[in-house]
């Protein structure tokens, strides 16, 4: 019988912050396993620790204790250089507020992670065009974010996340700034990517979106209180 290596494995992860004299547990002994190609929705009230969990999985943050193993790589004790390379090669981030660079065109925004991946000019342009076409923006490559609608901006952000062919996409409230029709389109796009084998982690308040996931994980006060398929 074939034993599959989990895409994401969190073992007893704790993350504490010190605010003034108080210690705040953002994550409290959280353990989680996600298989490759899985679509997991992380829900919970504001301040519950779901973004902290996503940041730790995405390599933007480090746990205070516990182990984070992604694609067989232990992220708990690596230095900035390795963690940055991990984000560049394995993770695609999609943010609620798109986080596009306003002075750059859609194409230039998508090229950005490829620049950090040291890809050469022609190759990275070709790859960025490919990604923009994949999200249906092949005719908007030279438009600046201000010339695009909200939905189109989020598509550019998804194209940017796709550029380095990540194994995991972490989307933090990807439809939060969109109307329901545009939100549905974005979710359809993300689901398509998931169907292509990309592990998808979505942080959301929206139960409709959460229900689209294979699995829903709920966090309250830093604890993984619900865990159902």
């Amino acid at each position: 019988m074939e034993t599959k290596t989990p895409a994401i494995e969190l073992k007893h992860v704790t993350k504490t912050y010190k605010l003034g004299g108080e210690t705040l547990n953002a994550l409290d002994n959280v353990s989680l396993v996600a298989q490759a190609g899985e679509f997991i929705a992380i829900t919970g009230p504001s301040g519950s620790g779901k973004s902290t969990l996503a940041n730790i999985i995405g390599g933007l943050d480090k746990p205070t204790s516990g182990d984070v193993i992604v694609d067989g790589q232990d992220l708990s004790h690596v230095r900035d250089r390795a963690l940055s390379d991990y984000r560049n090669h394995h993770i695609g981030f999609v943010f609620q507020s798109f986080n596009l660079q306003g002075s750059n065109t859609a194409l230039e925004n998508v090229i950005m992670p490829l620049v950090f991946a040291k890809m050469r000019g022609k190759q990275r342009k070709a790859r960025a065009l490919e990604c923009l076409q994949a999200v249906g923006l092949g005719d908007r490559v030279n438009h600046k974010p201000s010339q695009l609608s909200g939905g189109q901006r989020q598509r550019v952000a998804i194209a940017r996340a796709l550029a380095v062919k990540p194994s995991i996409i972490i989307a933090d409230e990807p439809t939060g700034n969109l109307d329901s029709a545009r939100g549905a389109e974005i979710m359809k796009l993300l689901q398509d990517l998931n169907h292509q084998g990309i592990t998808l982690l979505i942080i959301t308040h929206d139960q409709t979106i959460a229900r689209l996931a294979h699995r829903m994980v709920s966090i309250h006060d830093g604890k993984l209180v619900e865990h159902r398929g």
């Binding site: 933007l60 250089r81 940055s84």
Partner: peptide
């Protein structure tokens, strides 16, 4: 600052 955050998120090292 936000742009720096995005750069870091998509793989820019501190040294970069």
């Amino acid at each position: 600052t936000r742009e720096i955050g995005v750069m870091r998120a998509v793989g820019a090292r501190r040294s970069t």
